[in-house]
Design a protein around this nucleic acid. Structure first.
Length: 308
DNA sequence: AATATCATCAACCGCGAACAC
DNA sequence: GGTGTTCGCGGTTGATGATAT
């Protein structure tokens, strides 16, 4: 156990702010080779002057494979709106229904755009207050529309009875449908499960012991290896030299770089992952189907990952 | 062209839950 | 049961670019 002064020193040593391409590279290389395991050990082993929390965030939001980036499609926005209506600010839950999107990204999009959009739609011009259907919505809640959408909570947005936490968007047939017309089609949460890369970490850790372990055998989430994704991360091959990430645009403040690797003969390596999954202009079903093919081709067990 | 304001988004912070000792 | 550690989540901040004046 370290003393408080030691902890303080470590805290002070931790770098903050935007990530440099070099830091991204180090983190990526480390996690691809060893898995994240215990996040607090990651920066130590990867030679980063960051705390584990920061590494985790960077990985989840920007470095893990399969992230979409770019503009939200109208379909995605509909999905977010529908889910937010029932889940409130449960961004992590919402993100499970949006393949390739992170909770942070969705949250930002909500605050910067969707919230205003919803507010605009629901608050009519003052002159038409008495005659528009929106009034009905206002009357539904004791809180104002602004409150409803600025800080939604289960008590405010009135989720479906009893199962707000477990709410299944695939089977909902509710007020939204009646009030807002046909419900949007929601993508199934199959791809993002894998994208969490927790499985990645656990399975890879079996073959590559981290340099620094964790005393706390905290097996929350997948880190305990309870889920067998059958995803063996070899020391070479598919994940060698992080091919999964090639071609990903990595940004850090004003600087950016596109990752590339070379094959053994020195030629540019292919982007295994992104070449197989082009997210733009595709339905989530297409992406999911591609993922199924991808798994079978590389003998990844997708059965434990997907909810078919 | 210079300045102010707004919008966006990456990252940090604090908290609670879960778990080990 | 108490304490310490880790993780994950949601709220918030701050830097930066875009746009308006």
């Amino acid at each position: 156990m370290g003393s408080k002064s030691q902890d303080q020193k470590l805290k002070l040593k931790h770098k903050k702010g935007l990530w440099s391409p070099e830091e991204d590279h180090r983190l990526r290389i480390y996690i691809v080779k060893h898995g994240h395991g215990c996040w607090s050990a990651v920066p130590v082993n990867a030679g980063l002057q960051r705390n584990g929390k920061s590494c985790r965030l960077r990985w989840i939001n920007y470095l893990r494979p399969g992230l979409k980036r770019g503009l939200f499609s109208s379909h995605e926005e509909d999905t977010i709106l529908a889910l937010h209506r029932h889940l409130g600010n449960k961004w992590s839950q919402i993100s499970q229904y949006l393949p390739g999107r992170t909770d942070n990204e969705i949250k930002n999009h909500w605050h910067s755009y969707l919230k205003k959009k919803v507010f605009k739609e629901q608050v009519p011009p003052p002159t038409s207050l008495e005659t528009t259907p929106h009034v009905k919505i206002q009357q539904c809640s004791s809180s104002s529309i602004t409150d409803q959408y600025s800080s939604p909570s289960p008590t405010k947005y009135s989720p479906p009875p009893s199962t707000s936490d477990q709410w299944d968007p695939h089977s909902y047939d509710n007020v939204h449908h009646q009030e807002n017309g046909p419900r949007p089609t929601l993508p199934k949460p199959m791809f993002t499960e894998w994208l969490s890369l927790d499985g990645f970490a656990a399975t890879s850790a079996a073959g590559h012991q981290p340099f620094v372990g964790c005393n706390n055998n905290n097996n929350k989430g997948f880190a305990g290896g309870s889920a067998d994704f059958g995803l063996d991360v070899p020391s070479s091959g598919l994940f060698d030299g992080y091919p999964l990430f090639e071609g990903h645009q990595v940004t850090s403040g004003q600087s950016s770089m596109t990752t590339t690797t070379t094959t053994s003969d020195g030629s540019a390596g292919g982007d295994v992952f992104s070449s197989r999954f082009s997210f733009d202009d595709q339905s989530s079903a297409d992406v999911n189907n591609q993922f199924v093919d991808f798994c079978s081709e590389f003998q990844l067990s997708g059965n434990n990952v997907m909810y078919m």
